[in-house]
Amino acid sequence: MVKIKINDQNLYAREGENILKLALKEGIDIPHLCYHEIFEEPYGACRLCIVEVIKDDERFITTSCTLQAQNGLEILTQSPEVVKHRKILLELYLAQAPNAENIKKLAEKYGIEKSRFPKRAFVTDHLNGKCILCGLCIRVCGEVMKAGVINYIGRGPSTKINTPFFEENPDCLGCLACVNICPTEAVSAEEVENRKILKSWSETKVKMKECKNCGSLFTTYPLWEKTKSLLMEMDTELEELCPNCKRELLIKKLTKNLPLPKPY
């Protein structure tokens, strides 16, 4: 264990422990948009998680999601220097994603009402003028779901996120991990008839799976394919049922041959 200090708080940490993770666990608020604990490696894209490190006579700014606990580490999360840069970053975000409510709220917290930078001209894009290019949707789709449906297109200021060639991508699982992880609620999806439509990702459509028994659309077809369990393989009757019908059938099957409890 090593001793560190965040603002006025003395803390113990494992050597090498991620400082942002630790701070959040301790209830210390550090704004962050591209960090998520499901990923092992920090990404370092949003730069909002900056903190000021005090080391001997030196002071410098760095991102807390890439900072590792070391004995004697001392950091400030809201020093004037940190706040100054964070405010500029928030102004940039406001201009980039004028429709993102979370960003507006965060900016308000820092006393920013209006960005000094001009807003982006088109806010009716496929991500509803809300995307701040944090990369979380790409990473969750590729690294966690192993689907790799979307990626960056282009570079620099013209960077976009979408499917290859802006075409429907048949690899999509319809899991909506991207929708759920997005910090600004930029990704939109809807269910129409028996299909999920990932509106943000070139209207990619994913077929739903119907329960053989009750007819409810209980999951998407590719997800169902992916998650067929061993149990279902042993008993194909269970295979095409929604969780409710599956549970009922299972109970029925399991209790059928059981001797009824004897009355005393």
Partner: peptide, 20 residues
């Protein structure tokens, strides 16, 4: 700005605004 990879915000958005 043109050669920025676009990954991080200060470089991607900031340089665009500087240019402006």
């Amino acid at each position: 700005s043109e050669e920025s990879c676009g990954k991080c915000t200060p470089c991607r958005e900031g340089l665009k605004q500087m240019l402006h």
